[in-house]
Computed example of a mutant assay.
Amino acid sequence: MKLTVAKLNRFLLFKLPSAYICGVRVKEIDFTSCKVSVKHRWINQNPFNSMYFAVQAMAAELTTGALVMMHIQNSNRNIAMLVASNKSKFTKKATGRITFECQNANQIEMAIQNAITTREGQTFWLKSIGTNENGEQVSEMDFEWTIRLK
Rank of each mutant, 00 (worst) to 15 (best):
N132L: 04
I129T: 04
M110S: 12
M141C: 08
Q113L: 10
L8V: 12
A80C: 13
I79T: 03
H71N: 11
A19S: 09
Q45K: 12
N78V: 05
N104Q: 14
N76I: 09
N9I: 06
A59F: 09
A84T: 15
F100H: 06
L16P: 01
V24A: 05
T95Q: 11
N76K: 15
I116N: 10
K39Y: 07
M141Q: 14
F31P: 13
M58Q: 03
V138D: 05
V26H: 00
S139C: 05
K15C: 10
S128A: 13
K92H: 08
L13K: 14
N49T: 06
A60N: 06
R77F: 07
N44L: 00
R119A: 03
A94S: 12
Y52F: 15
N44P: 05
C34S: 09
T117S: 14
K150L: 11
F53Y: 07
H40Q: 13
F48T: 10
E109T: 14
F11C: 07
V26W: 02
A54D: 03
F124R: 11
A66Q: 06
I116E: 13
Q103E: 14
S75L: 11
N49K: 14
I116Y: 06
W125I: 09
F124C: 07
K2R: 12
G65S: 00
E133M: 05
R148P: 05
M141E: 12
A84M: 14
F100A: 04
I147G: 04
Q122T: 11
Y20W: 12
I116T: 13
C22T: 10
C34G: 05
L82K: 01
K150Y: 01
L126D: 06
K89H: 08
A84Q: 15
W42P: 06
E133S: 08
S139I: 03
Q45M: 10
Q113G: 09
N106Y: 14
S50E: 15
A59Y: 10
A80T: 14
G65K: 03
L82D: 04
T64Q: 02
N134L: 15
Y20I: 03
G65R: 00
L12N: 06
N114K: 15
S50N: 15
N74P: 12
K35F: 06
F53T: 09
C22M: 08
E109A: 15
S37H: 01
V38G: 04
